[in-house]
Write a protein that binds this DNA or RNA. Sequence first.
DNA 1: TGTACATCAGTGAACGCGCGTTCACTGATGTAC
DNA 2: TGTACATCAGTGAACGCGCGTTCACTGATGTAC
Lengths: 208, 208
Amino acid sequence: VDVKRYKVLNLEKKKYHHGDLPGQLIEAVRQLIERDGPDDFKVADAARLAGVSTAAPYRHFANRADLVRHVVIAAMGRMKEGMAQAASSHRAGDPGRVIALGRSYVEFASQEPGMFQVMFSGTSEHVHDPELKALGDETLKVVQLVVAEHLGIEIDAHEARLRAYALWCFVHGHSFLHIDSKLPEQFTDEIEDELLRLVGDAILPERT
Amino acid sequence: VDVKRYKVLNLEKKKYHHGDLPGQLIEAVRQLIERDGPDDFKVADAARLAGVSTAAPYRHFANRADLVRHVVIAAMGRMKEGMAQAASSHRAGDPGRVIALGRSYVEFASQEPGMFQVMFSGTSEHVHDPELKALGDETLKVVQLVVAEHLGIEIDAHEARLRAYALWCFVHGHSFLHIDSKLPEQFTDEIEDELLRLVGDAILPERT
DNA sequence: TGTACATCAGTGAACGCGCGTTCACTGATGTAC
DNA sequence: TGTACATCAGTGAACGCGCGTTCACTGATGTAC
């Protein structure tokens, strides 16, 4: 793999002290995960991409897993941010709101497929990290809130939770199938739209 | 990891020639994938588990990836089998049929979580294998057929395909979230039932 | 039915390489006085 | 304001280990005659 083709992130005149190496390593890993696949990036590549020696990362991260953890936290933040924004760009009653929320999720997954897999890769270590769990829960909360408002019921109502989870499953599954290019042939953007609307409507029926 | 705790698969009196080493290696890998995680099994462990030397597998499989490929093919077959059986255990009009189909999918995922991940692990090599793709398509066909019959329309109708895919997304997503133990707290079997019925009904409305 | 031989399916040991991580070091920066 | 010193953030090289894979081999099996 030709790393040299990637421009070194640290563009300014090469200083001995780096400025924000942790941040740039995280960004480097983000890029490498997309380039090489969920778990195939090399710490050394990340270092090179950030323009430092292969030993430098260990001044800031205990080990590879620790680095990944920080990368995932950053990604979760981005995702939650995107969803919160989608939700806040529609009024509470707006039927397009749920669609926008779902689309935001799917979009994240297709823009950062590698990262998406890292975030939801089952038996991976970081599943039980409390910080990550908290972030995940907050994101789910966003969905639950939107659903509850749509249905005009309490956020903690059984119905709200159930339907929110159903929607989550759907976008999650679609995201994965999309990433794995397991979707049926001729799956155009229009069909995706139709799909989102169909499911949104089915699970959160229009209030009349 | 203590391999010795696992009984060697080849129980009969140790013969030099093995009988069905390829099959037993595939079975060994299946077990190891569940034990060690989607991509963490060692070829050497599989060999030990089958009671042969570490070099033996290479008499039957070109390399590790080739072995995995065969393992996945077998798993896909199992999955398809399970779904076909679920479908055939209900009459065409039965509204419980779709539920049974979905449950079969989710059940597979929770019984073989590691394998499920290997089968649907995104950027992994075997995605573009024609034999695997064919198997996957056949499985999707099962779902499409059931959906089409439920709706009383042609299997290739746009509506049938769309709703079949929507259901697929749902069970797929739920399976993954389940595996990643990302499901909301207190998610009992009863709630799962309720969920399946809710979604089934929403996407394939009862004909009245 | 017995022997010669090709072939197949194993073995045990070692090889090799990729890559995470450590080590002894050095250059830069901040603070005390 | 200048110098001494602690501390921090880098470097380049090497280490070490896990594991897939190969190698030269040997034991078992099937077939020809």
